[in-house]
Design a protein around this nucleic acid. Structure first.
Lengths: 200, 200
DNA sequence: CTCCTCTCGAACAATGTGTTCACTTATGAA
DNA sequence: TTCATAAGTGAACACATTGTTCGAGAGGAG
């Protein structure tokens, strides 16, 4: 092993390497679904993947590296900002997607989830929301960033609370409440802002 | 030692007990300010407090117990809901309070903070916001709870992002953005709801 | 087939947790 | 002041987890 931990070598030639990495990734997913993300230890991982301890560290620096490697393959949070159509059209689709992957979402974002994972999701969503508002003519500003933070915070809070069973609702209800709370304020922002609407 | 870990015995007679507990609490606060909450270990605590390991466990079950004991004395999040005055009047005061206690807030809520601490703060704030909306005539409902979750999520997200230096702003700016995002939606909710306005 | 890479697995040093116990000390009440 | 007792000490323990190292051996590429 050349010691290249967590490289981008997706299509590695050596069958052994592929076997090891996929075994570890699969083990992580399984364990996450069973216990949540935080409680999973490297020791769990190598036991489940049936892989030597040294082998693990030859490929990944820690469990987070494994997760973030796998996360790229999931297309959660692939919210492509749209300038037309309803504001924040992503929300309903996302809430529904979250319901489908509920166990995983709870494990990653919920109480037993991981701080870094939430932060990662927040970053992705923040970028998407910001882009959408810019595409709809909002002027880039500190104020805009604050508003984006609010919107993302609201969305993540609902998702987390719902995944954790703190609230009971359908995706449609989540969506309605989210939009009812946030859209009026954002719409006011957009209208107040003359903006250079790039097409409609 | 009778083995009563973390009791409510605030005014304990024995001077030794008081000495031990305050030493541990003070140690936790100091260490939190130095390293953030998560990295602090029980071992750190007993070294700093200069207290035997067994003594620590005679008084507290873990570091979280120490924190939650101390937290009661801080009057963060003492947002008394008001039925009159502007909606969410607590927000500016709270943002300002947060600025004063910035180092502590960052340590508790920020990247190096603790999951449970955030959850605790969220619970307190959720209750306060919910009460305020009820006091202003909103009907108790699942929808209301969802909206409250949004509002609290937005507030916490701003606070955290700001404490972590992800965004730069004054309390007034935070307050403006928060209210601009959230108040229109909430106001619409209250107006749509005939409600039994109890005075105002 | 052969050579090189990867894996194995065990051992290691660190660090942390939570418990136990015999011993010493401080405290508060009489 | 005396003294029974509640409290603190400190060291040792078993255990879990991390991240590293190394020689031996197996597996794959070419």
């Amino acid at each position: 092993m050349t010691g290249n931990a967590a490289p981008g070598n997706r299509g590695n030639a050596d069958r052994r390497v592929r076997r090891t990495r996929t075994a570890i990734r699969r083990a992580l997913m399984e364990l996450i679904l069973e216990k949540g993300y935080e409680p999973v230890t490297v020791t769990d991982l190598i036991n489940r993947a049936d892989v030597g301890r040294s082998t693990f560290y030859a490929h990944f620096t820690d469990k987070q590296a494994v997760l973030f490697g796998s996360l790229e393959e999931l297309d959660f949070l692939r919210a492509s900002p749209s300038a037309d159509g309803p504001l924040f059209a992503f929300s309903l689709a996302m809430f529904e997607h979250v319901r489908e992957q509920r166990r995983l979402v709870r494990a990653l974002l919920g109480r037993r989830g991981g701080r870094e994972v939430v932060a990662h999701g927040e970053r992705l969503l923040t970028a998407a929301v910001r882009d959408e508002l810019l595409a709809r003519g909002a002027a880039p500003s500190a104020h805009l960033d604050l508003v984006v933070t609010c919107v993302v915070g609201a969305f993540m809070a609902m998702t987390r609370a719902w995944a954790d069973d703190e609230i009971v609702a359908t995706p449609a209800e989540l969506n309605t409440a989210f939009r009812a709370t946030v859209v009026p304020g954002v719409r006011a922002l957009l209208e107040r802002d003359p903006g250079h609407r790039p097409v409609g």
